[in-house]
Design a binder for these strands. Structure first.
Lengths: 242, 242
DNA sequence: CGCACACTTGACAACACTCAACAACCGTGG
DNA sequence: CCACGGTTGTTGAGTGTTGTCAAGTGTGCG
């Protein structure tokens, strides 16, 4: 399942994982260098190939992760195979907030992924030592709640066109966090992932992409690449039916 | 907006709010008596009538609350009036986890409600003093995330029948936390609230209630009262289409 | 008693789903 | 280099579940 687990190298020793240098979202942004050294001793770098499972929705929840590169898909399944994708995790995102004994969803790499793995027992000790860490984690959890609520609004009340427009805008704001403000986004997930994330079928997703393209809201240089021609127009499409 | 705000009375002085005596869900269950006395100094009892707004989705997020009696509805709205109810809060539930400057959803009392109100600035000071409190809040947040994910699965992939069955089972497990295991539940919310919670219309909710009744899964002694005849059968209906 | 409101039921329409065929893409191997 | 098969994505035709609009039935309250 896990292709490689290596101890942290000297090169990455200053920070316990690359995540912390990327963005403020990482949980470790809360800590000082000295404290990070201590975190360093309980973290392991993990690499996965595309398609590999990080954990399954009934596995014992022993680990938490910080994504450092690649994209992870979170999903839940019903007995008959219907699936709901609950989120996509990008570099600097934290994975494994659950408090229960077992994971409640499945996490799978949809691109090659690298991440920092923490034993939850270690993390618990760290909380006690560095309350700042738990404070940071609460922030992460609250952000997750807010976007979960947005997603409920999307799934419960929005049309296919609004759903896809909202989705593209979310990806845009994410991909712009680090870098340029160009309206071009990469879709690492396939149509089935998008459909299961938006509560639609692949056919409807495909048709809706076509419509957005014909309406001049987006361009599609390739299947996995979207150019947003006017973010305001798309924002409009994300909240108005038809 | 708020009908009455009273300082804590001598009778309620031992615990800073009644919630803590009700159930383990309350955030204050994490604290010792001595620490509770300190919380006591920053809490205010608030009473609301049915229909009153606790806060609106763009209000500055200055307060957090512990519900002590009654039911609160959380919702988000689109510009054109479409609404998504994101949850119903019962006694012992915590309200106001958001980290941002403003609330991201509207909270409204759907029955007479009493609750303990905390100034978030006070709460922040309490966190620093009692890390246990923040730990407890993280637990609360994680539970909220888990049920939000369940709700996404419901909204994205379940049929009307499955949605209503799931909803009734959730209410059942909630109402049984405190007391008897009788399969009878009270619906403090109206059909529109249920519809907006389940991503349906009132008509579909009504029709689906009728179907569940005709199929012998539930009885309806009155509009707001549901008797679950066999929880296992209903659990079946909650995960199998048609 | 009658009005108002919430809920239910019916007829019809529509948006998204299902099933099916087709096209594009990609890696493989001749 | 191109032919081939498999996979993924797109498009089409028809169906269905749920939404819309409208009428009807309680139920509570003044």
């Amino acid at each position: 399942m896990v292709t490689s687990i290596e101890p942290v190298t000297a090169a990455s020793a200053r920070f316990q994982c690359e995540t912390c240098e990327l963005r403020s979202h990482s949980i470790c942004s809360a800590l000082q260098d000295e404290e990070l050294r201590e975190m360093n001793q309980v973290v392991r770098q993990v690499s996965l190939d595309a398609g590999q499972i990080v954990f399954f929705e009934t596995d014992p929840a022993d680990f938490s992760f910080n994504i450092t590169s690649g994209v992870v898909r979170l999903s839940k399944m019903l007995a008959d195979g219907r699936r709901q994708v609950t989120g996509f995790l990008y570099p600097s995102d934290f994975l494994g907030l659950a408090v229960g004994k077992d994971y409640t969803q499945t996490a799978e790499a949809i691109t090659p992924v690298r991440m920092c793995r923490f034993d939850r027992k270690d993390l618990t000790r760290m909380y006690e030592k560095f309350p700042k860490l738990e404070h940071r984690l609460l922030e992460v959890a609250c952000n997750e709640i807010v976007s979960a609520q947005d997603q409920m609004l999307l799934l419960g009340r929005k049309t296919a066109r609004e759903r896809l427009s909202s989705f593209l805008l979310n990806l845009l704001s994410r991909s712009n966090l680090g870098e340029r403000l160009i309206g071009e986004i990469d879709l690492p997930m396939d149509r089935a992932d998008i459909a299961d994330y938006l509560g639609l079928t692949v056919e409807t997703v495909s048709r809706t992409f076509t419509k957005l393209r014909k309406d001049g809201l987006i361009e599609m240089p390739s299947k996995n690449r979207i150019v947003i021609r006017d973010a305001d127009d798309l924002a409009d499409a994300a909240e108005n039916p038809d």
